[in-house]
Computed example of a mutant assay.
Amino acid sequence: MEQMIIKGLEGITVAATNISLVDGDHGRLVYRAYWAKDLALQHDFEEVCYLLWHGRLPNEIELKKLKNDFREQRRLPAHLVELLKILPENMPMMSVIRTCISAMGDGSYQWPPKVEEAIKITAVLPTIIAARSHLLKGENVIDPHETLDHVANFLYMLNGEIPLGAHSKVLNAYFVLTMEHGMNASTFSSRVIASTESDIVSAITGAIGAMKGPLHGGAPSEVTAMLDEIGSKENAEGWIREQLEKGKKLMGFGHRIYKTRDPRAEALKEMTSQLTKEDPWLDLAVHVEAEAIRLLEEYKPGRKLYTNVEFYAAAVLRAVNMPAELFTPTFTSSRVAGWTANVMEQSLDNRIYRPSSLYNGGMPKD
C-alpha cells in the first residue's frame, strides 16, 4: 500500500491544547475561552500573559505581582550587555535575539519549564532589542523605566521618552493579538524541542529561529511601502485601481487561514479608528482599507478579500515610530508569551515527537 505524505503536516492534528483556537472558516480567535479581540481592547499584555500561563485572568494582587516581576526581570544581565557589544554589526536583529536568549540558558533552567522562567524570557526580550538598536547607532543604552508597564516601557527604551498614551494603548493591542496563534511553525518548533525534555531556553531559541524565516515572521514592511506610495486619501482610489487593473496584489489583504475577516485585523481596526484624529497615518490606513475592500469586490467579486493582521500591524508599528527593521523582532516580543505557554503545556502530558519519513533512495546492490 502506497504511503501518503502530507507535506508541511497541513491538516494533521499533532496536539491537544487549551491555549488558543484559530477558526479560519468563521474568523474567530480564542485565548483560553476569551475572545482575543476583547482581551486586546480591554486588558494589558501582562494580564493576558497570566491568562495564557495560568488558564485564568489574574486578580488585582496577582496582576500587581506579575507586573513587579516583569520590572525586576527586564534588566539585562551583565553578560548579555557584553555580548551585545561584541556581536558583529551586520548581524540581523533576529539573530541577535536568538543568540542572547540562548546565552541565558545557564544551569538554572531545567525540565519541566516554570512560569518564572517564562517571565524572565518574556520580560527581557524587548530590552535586548532596544539596547542593540542604540548600540548600533553609537548611542547610550536606555535603562528600563522603573514604573511603566511592559509595552509602554518598550517604547520608552527605544525612544527615550514617555510614550503617548494612545501609542501605548494601540501597541498593547497589537501585542495581545499576536502573542498566540495556534500550531504555527515557530510554536510547533518550540513544542518539538520541549518534547525532548530540553529546557525552555532551548525551546524558545528554536522558536526564534523559525520566526526568523521570511515565510513565517515576514514583517509587514511591504504594507508600509504601499501606504507610503499612496501618500494621501485623495490618491487612494486611483492608486488601488491602477494596481488591480495591472493584476497586482494588494499587500495586507487576504489570509491563508482566515476565509473571512481576520479577527486580529478587526480588533486593531477598532482600536486605530478611535485614534485617527490623533494620528494622520492611522487615518490614512483606515481610509485605504475601506477603498481597497470596495474596489476588490468590484474587480474580484465573490473573493471576499479582507485586511489581514499585517495591514494593521504595519499601520500600528509605523504610527508608534517603529523602524521597519524592528517589525519582526517586535512581533517576536509578543509571540514569546504564546511560545512559553505552549512549552509549559507540552510538559504536562509529554511525548516526544517522532514522525516518519518515506525513503526514496536506492538500496544496496547485494
Rank of each mutant, 00 (worst) to 15 (best):
T328F: 01
A130H: 13
L29G: 11
D143G: 02
A203V: 07
D149A: 08
E222A: 11
M4K: 14
S190L: 09
S347K: 02
I240Y: 02
R241L: 07
P58A: 09
E180D: 07
E289W: 08
L39A: 15
R75F: 11
A313N: 01
K249I: 15
I6S: 03
K365P: 07
H167A: 09
L41D: 13
L51M: 10
H43V: 11
E297N: 11
R261F: 01
H54Y: 13
S102R: 02
Y353E: 11
E197S: 09
A203Y: 06
Q274A: 12
R32M: 08
P355G: 02
Q346W: 06
A185L: 05
Q3S: 12
S20W: 04
L268N: 04
G160L: 12
N235F: 05
S133F: 15
Q110F: 01
R191K: 13
R318C: 00
S133H: 15
H167S: 08
T328S: 04
A341Q: 02
G302W: 06
L41G: 08
K67G: 01
L51D: 14
F154Q: 06
Q42R: 14
G238V: 01
V115T: 13
K64H: 09
T224A: 12
T307M: 01
V151L: 05
R32Q: 13
T276V: 13
T328L: 05
K120C: 08
Y299Q: 03
Y312W: 12
H134E: 06
